[in-house]
Design a protein around this nucleic acid. Structure first.
Lengths: 200, 200
DNA sequence: CAGGGGTGTTACCGGTCAGTAACAAGCATA
DNA sequence: TATGCTTGTTACTGACCGGTAACACCCCTG
């Protein structure tokens, strides 16, 4: 089972510190091939280094996985911040921007859903260090969505947020089984209908 | 990483033919621990037999995985048939029954989401024999839902079906990251609101 | 009784897994 | 020039992976 990999600019650049190169290579391989499908040796090779250096920066593969997810959670937080900065005082526009970005992400065939959700499916062990990261991230995601729905003046912000949350989560996972042209392609329209129903 | 396993009645019963015991053991282990996390030796042992007998009934582990998913797809088909038989000529009741069953399934902490969807995440290789099964199953699932929504007289049956489809898919996957007490616990209420909106 | 198909047992194959020990080489600072 | 830190290299461990060969066994049918 040959793994697919891309030559990432960061991992090819030997100017970048090895820890960053390893994380970049691991992110790429984990996301596209699955966490369990990727060995540490392949990660080190893709990062232009070797297994020893990898283990000098990460205590174990599980810790590398946790850090990989931590980075993605941070990126998502920055995306939310960017939305808020782009539409200050306009929660409705922020919500609209979020929906549009999510639909674009779902339709993109290069994407394979939410890395955090995928990891939760792939790593059912309750004591895996990645689980803390996943649970905290998803809870924070939901909280932000609830706050945003509340700011728009929806009648039941928490219910609306959960509807949108499930809609998105379903779109991202179903794109991998029925394909991105299926139900997931009308995410914006569905979301707008939900929002409208709660603003009456 | 010790695997969790249950002593299934069928796998403990040596009266049952070995092929069925193997499938039962594989279903249990695959679903709870993930497909890649389970080795064929562990499956054979849980089925009360050995690796050789397993390979006399299944050409490879990948084929065993495909058959495991085929069985589940068949079970789901029977569930739909049962719903239709329980509420003949009453699509509204069938839809309601489907929603209730899905919420019960999502809330059950023993469950770990849709085995087919999980497999799609765990097995991204396009040529894996399981992918055909997954894609056909999800497409059939969606078709049945569309037909049912159409029979209820919804104004846009396909859109409603996709909304319900994504809602369910999201609920099952998010139960594994935010837990079953989160957004997934109000699936019936959300679904009913969607249906009502399309029956106006 | 003879035959044969399904099953169990053991040992093995080559390969990969996560993780480590020991040592050489580079490179900066002091 | 000498120090000390980071990295590279090679080789290795013990375990497990999917899959197979060879052979003994049991039980049912003829």
């Amino acid at each position: 089972m040959s793994l697919s990999a891309n030559a990432l600019s960061v991992s090819a650049n030997s100017q970048t510190p090895p820890r960053e190169r390893i994380l970049a290579a691991a992110s790429d391989l984990f996301y596209r091939n699955g966490i369990r499908a990727v060995g540490v040796e392949a990660i080190a090779a893709a990062a232009g280094t070797n297994k020893m250096t990898l283990y000098r920066h990460f205590a174990s593969k599980d810790e590398l996985v946790a850090e990989y997810l931590r980075r993605l959670a941070g990126d998502a937080g920055h995306f939310w911040d960017g939305l808020a900065a782009a539409h200050p005082g306009n929660p409705r526009a922020q919500l609209r921007g979020w929906l549009a970005a999510m639909e674009a992400h779902v339709v993109d065939t290069e994407q394979r859903g939410c890395a955090l959700a995928n990891a939760a499916i792939e790593l059912p062990e309750k004591d895996h260090p990645a689980r803390r990261v996943i649970e905290q991230f998803k809870a924070a995601q939901r909280e932000r969505l609830i706050a945003l729905c509340g700011a728009t003046g929806a009648d039941e912000p928490e219910l609306l947020a959960d509807e949108l949350f499930l809609l998105l989560e379903g779109a991202r996972v179903s794109a991998q089984s029925v394909g991105p042209t299926g139900p997931a392609s009308r995410l914006v329209r569905m979301g707008e209908a939900l929002i409208a129903a709660h603003l009456s």
